[in-house]
Design a protein around this nucleic acid. Structure first.
Lengths: 212, 212
DNA sequence: TTTTTTCTCCGTCTTAAGACTGAGTATTTT
DNA sequence: AAAATACTCAGTCTTAAGACGGAGAAAAAA
């Protein structure tokens, strides 16, 4: 029996996956969690063979949870289960120590197959994902904003909101010249030519939390 | 018995929901589909009481499918089941004739409850969604771009891509002055102050098809 | 046929943006 | 103690952006 923990903040999805997995006699679902933190704690406690982890969750992302798990219990196989939105998250997930990377468009049987393979130590990566991995592997360009300082990130998010330099300076209580300096540094770091492209970057990388 | 059809392109999610619903004796899942078109056809054929419809699908959105269903079989109750990304889609879904609007963060029991209520003709809307509906109901402002002409929309999409006026004029084979005219008209119609805000508008309203 | 819409383009003018250089202060790292 | 990093701000300069007004041609609507 392969001992599995399922972590997903969508109860419907979680219960559904569990209901399906329970039809498989080789698989034993020994726990479930609805957030990354809860999941990491549970996994470290229960020590399952495989973890099925959703990537996008409200309270703490699947990436952080994966990092926590790999730190305390590195022999665990974490399978990232993601919807098609999170392309940009593939590399961070890999770095965090994820074992396999499945899309939710996978068939249900693909998932049980991936779990069994993971238990045997075999890596599974979606063909579509694999394509991204190889074609799009341009040395960390998918997370350029990580080189930004805190202040620069603040300014960038304002740009992503459509604010002018003046508005940003008012909001952050700094001079407009300072804002200009930050903006110039941001553009250089993101390798874009103007604030509009920076705003596009923000949205393509979904850096804004409250998209109203 | 309430006759239900489930439409979702994520097989895992679909199978999961079905597996859960089958534990409820009042509900009978009589069909499933993995795309909007397939779903619409199936619904019109099987005439279920309630349809559980995912909003974001690869082949034809849930909105189109809902429209098709309401056209041929208007007494059907379509419950939209969506993840938290698709806020902007609420109004189009309403217009298409969706009956209820549930988030995937709902608990599994919320879903069966929504199905039972829908069968009785009772409308269910998530509190978080309801908030959006009322607070954000500013007379069609969510579709301001519909007043744009074809050419203006073309230019707007270029802006959303981060292009400068010069780049746009080269791409569309028109003068830069013409581009400026279009841009000014676009900004006025979208009620924004500069191209950066216009770019933000494009992304918030997901007007770009290929978000690579 | 007349009117309206759309797309095209011109000139002028003002200002926000951004590049570049330099620099003071504080904090953290080494 | 010295060096690197982060945040702040100044001055200068160039140019893209955008507002405003005007206008011609073609196509669609009235």
């Amino acid at each position: 029996m392969i001992r599995v923990v399922v972590v997903d903040d969508h109860e419907v999805v979680r219960k559904g996956i569990i209901a399906y997995l329970q039809t498989d006699m080789e698989i034993d679902v020994i726990g479930e969690a609805s957030s990354g933190n809860e999941g990491a704690t549970l996994v470290i406690e229960k020590q399952p063979d495989v973890v099925l982890m959703d990537l996008m969750m409200d309270n703490g992302s699947g990436i952080e949870a994966t990092e926590q798990i790999m730190e305390k219990y590195p022999s665990c196989k974490v399978i990232i289960l993601t919807s098609y939105y999170d392309d940009e998250q593939i590399f961070p997930a890999m770095e965090a120590g994820a074992f396999s990377y499945l899309l939710k468009t996978s068939s249900a049987s693909d998932i049980s197959r991936a779990i069994k393979k993971a238990a045997k130590g075999e890596n599974v990566i979606e063909p579509t994902v694999a394509g991204k991995v190889f074609s799009g592997y341009r040395k960390g360009s998918e997370q350029l904003h990580e080189s930004l300082t805190n202040r620069e990130l603040e300014v960038l998010l304002c740009i992503g909101d459509g604010m002018t330099n003046k508005e940003i300076s008012d909001k952050l209580y700094i001079g407009i010249k300072t804002v200009k300096t930050h903006v110039s540094n941001i553009l250089a770091k993101l390798q874009v030519n103007d604030r509009t492209q920076a705003a596009v970057y923000v949205h393509k990388n979904k850096l804004l939390k409250e998209e109203e």
